[in-house]
Nucleic acid binder design. Structure first.
Lengths: 328, 328
DNA sequence: AAAAGCATTGTAAACGTTTACTTTTCGTGA
DNA sequence: TCACGAAAAGTAAACGTTTACAATGCTTTT
């Protein structure tokens, strides 16, 4: 039914080895005359390479697997764009698997899928797998790299922002603008990222001899609704004079709730977000953000994959900057 | 190096056929006693199935390929969620390939990749491939379906919204709110979707005996910036009393530019968007939208794939509704 | 004219599964 | 005890490539 190189070989009157060589452009192993015959036959028969066969015999695939959490925050698109552009340059395919929102089952299945496909590398976005899955990942012996998550222990390679510094500098920025009572909203302290940001925040406050209160730190999962909730807890007459939203959407949630309370941003309350995606520019007032280099995380991650030797993977931080806008 | 069923067979002291049957859960073909031995050996050796080998011999894969345009509009995530959830239920993997923003090269490569992987089905999101690629797609004899794009001719199967009706009803809604001079922003009339929406708009205007002007229709590609540009063209003292943005972001662009001009939304200018993603709820004022059923497009599309018989694919429209908010 | 070297092509094994077909084992009824 | 049938297990071919190695033919060197 389907056309194979064997059919081409017959049509072109050569051996399958020759066909294979021509089609794979193994230069120097065939004459142009034969090549022309082969290519023409392939074209005529409507030949399509069978990737499964190729991967089986070569024991490798030119595919990078990307596992993404289907979170409601939106930076993943930028990271993926970075991965994609870099992969395209090197003729690699990218397959993306969504792993739900912190659903361990889906995560496990996604991981299993890419491992069984023996992809040449695995990029894991903003997900911290359970220990069993990490063990599986290691056993699989496939280069893998975490993006936009960092770890304290485990020595897993990652490319991410330095979240302690993000927390510190965001806070420091607000303090230098004259704020003294600064809150932080929708932070997930079960994640390493979350703890680091809080630590950075606390250090900055301490460095400026500013007191903090536990109630100024509102837990959540970086979502819009968590931002709203956090602001509701801070109240209509908040003690605070500035709030850091731990994602763009969270910050927007804080801002909208603040305005519902009749507070003016930035005069009554300054707001700052962490991420700096398009979101912060389309709302009014535009939100001052710690802008992360998501695209770069993706392209750097992809480049690292190209070395293939995982032992050389070195965790690194991507730069971030503060973009001042109207909300501070 | 890697563990194969042959290794398991040796360890468990059975034939590879038995191993294969146990591991594939072909019930009725093995005794529980043997099964236990096999499973234990597999576990012990750290066996991983080789998908390439499976696909080669079975001539089929349990993978759905999804091709997405990496557009700056954001509804794709919802469609993908629908696809993903449905696929998960049926134990299928989903691989997603980004095809750039209307870059024919990337589209071609993405298509080629999924075809060569002989996926069991292809879902194409918001992309209208060039004719050559459509021919290739057909020749490949793989079930395929377009989501969120419709076609006049070609008889390609799709699941999308009825864009004529969207255009009509959005316009009709505004007219019934008392508006008479209605514009439409950031519409791409090179797409079928675009022409249909404009036709719907024009018909609604005509049905109410309202005149229109060519300048009221501003071309673009559904982006935020196109929304801004459109509004700039309409001017600081626009002739219009309402504008339809052809995506959420486009509508937000229109709104932000209108406010830059000092216009009040909705009193000076009513604004309406088409899509109805989270975006319209996080901006102030919240935007009245034609809300499409993106998630449903995804899950319906996936369900259709399950039939596998492409000749039975029937193009269909998913429902939409109008959600009134603060911008009208 | 034979030998050597090179370019080109061919042969066949290998990759890791699944599965049609065959063989063995085992329980049951006569 | 034996024949029979069902259950369990085994044998081997097949899937479509790549590639090491072998073979062929041609050109160049001696």
């Amino acid at each position: 039914m389907t056309v194979t190189i064997k059919d081409i070989a017959e049509t072109a009157n050569v051996s399958i080895a020759t066909v294979s060589r021509v089609l794979a452009n193994k230069e120097g192993f065939y004459s142009e005359k034969t090549a022309a015959k082969v290519r023409q036959a392939a074209e005529k028969l409507g030949y399509r390479k069978n990737t499964a066969a190729v991967e089986l015999v070569t024991q490798r695939s030119k595919v990078i697997g990307v596992i993404v959490s289907a979170t409601k925050t939106n930076f993943a698109n930028d990271i993926i764009a970075g991965i994609q552009d870099e992969a395209f340059k090197h003729n690699l395919s990218v397959i993306i698997l969504y792993a739900g929102e912190s659903d361990p089952n889906q995560q496990h299945r996604a991981l299993q899928t890419v491992i069984e496909r023996s992809v040449m590398g695995i990029l894991i976005l903003a997900i911290r797998p359970v220990d069993d899955d990490i063990a599986m990942l290691r056993a699989a012996n496939i280069p893998h790299l975490f993006l936009s998550t960092s770890f304290d222990s485990q020595n897993l390679p990652f490319i991410a922002s330095d979240d302690f510094r993000i927390g510190y500098q965001a806070t420091d920025f607000l303090i230098k603008k004259g704020h003294k009572k600064i809150g932080i909203a929708a932070i997930d302290r079960h994640t390493y990222i979350g703890t680091q940001r809080v630590l950075g925040y606390q250090r900055a406050m301490a460095d400026h001899d500013l007191p903090t209160k536990p109630a100024w730190i509102q837990d959540g999962h970086f979502t819009y609704d968590d931002g709203i909730e956090a602001m509701k807890t801070f109240g209509a007459k908040p003690e605070l004079d500035a709030v850091i939203g731990t994602s763009d959407l969270a910050a927007i949630g804080v801002m909208n709730q603040a305005e519902t309370f009749g507070l003016n941003v930035p005069t009554d309350l300054a707001i700052m977000s962490i991420d700096g995606t398009q979101m912060v520019k389309i709302v009014r007032p535009q939100i001052t953000s710690v802008t992360q280099s998501f695209y770069e995380m993706g392209s750097r991650g992809m480049k690292m994959m190209l070395q293939r030797d995982m032992t050389k993977f070195e965790s690194q931080y991507t730069p971030f900057r503060i973009d001042e806008r109207e909300s501070t």
